[in-house]
Design a protein around this nucleic acid. Structure first.
Length: 193
DNA sequence: ACAGCGATTGACT
DNA sequence: GTCAATCGCTGTA
């Protein structure tokens, strides 16, 4: 399994977002491995992106977005859910890619247990759903996905074919002129919003 | 110090 | 289709 290095994330958020489609998110747990293919993402920047947490200024919550690329930015949303991003752009320049949906590959039983689900329906097709399936929460915020021996990382996928579609980002009120949501066309695990 | 609200989900009509 | 849940961050005072 070839882990993606920091240089991959040290780039424009939109570039990284498109390239993350089809990659594999992996979490090594005690005695178990969870893996899933990334099928839907959104790019966020700072300047000129009113939809981003980092649009106005650096705050305690968004500070991770200003830090090293390749680090996890996890935040609590709507009082119920954890949303997972990977930090992009050179250090000091805020940016992140939100992973909105994934297609399960390995560790499906664990995912089902956490989601209290019987089958694959609705298991990982949303930003708060797949993080729950993976057991990702506040403690993952600031975790370096490119560190040697990281338990959570992103790897290169197989060369499965897909077509990327784009649209406005979901759930935000500003920045709607930017079509920075990218997803695999016709993939059943893309969020159904 | 505090009111308002969000990069969502699941349950219910 | 509609709507409540739920909590901590953010902007304003």
């Amino acid at each position: 399994m070839r882990v993606i290095d920091r240089g991959f994330f040290n780039s424009h958020s939109v570039t990284v977002a498109k390239k993350l489609i089809g990659k594999i998110i992996v979490k090594r747990e005690k005695g178990k491995t969870l893996a899933a293919r990334i099928v839907e993402v959104e790019a966020y920047r700072s300047k000129n992106d009113p939809g981003s947490h980092a649009y106005r200024r650096r705050t305690p919550r968004n500070s991770v977005m200003f830090g090293r690329p390749g680090v996890a930015y996890v935040y609590f949303c709507y009082g119920n859910h954890y949303l997972f991003n990977v930090v992009t752009e050179p250090e000091g320049d805020a940016g992140a890619v939100l992973i909105r949906a994934v297609e399960p590959i390995t560790g499906i039983d664990t995912m089902k247990k956490r989601r209290k689900a019987k089958d694959l329906t609705g298991l990982t097709n949303g930003p708060g759903k797949w993080t729950q399936a993976f057991g990702i929460a506040r403690k993952e915020n600031g975790l370096d996905l490119c560190a040697k021996g990281a338990k959570l990382f992103i790897a290169r996928g197989n060369n499965k074919k897909y077509r990327i579609a784009s649209s406005v980002r979901i759930g935000i009120k500003e920045g709607l002129e930017l079509k920075w949501r990218f997803y695999i066309k016709d993939n059943e695990f893309v969020s159904s919003v």
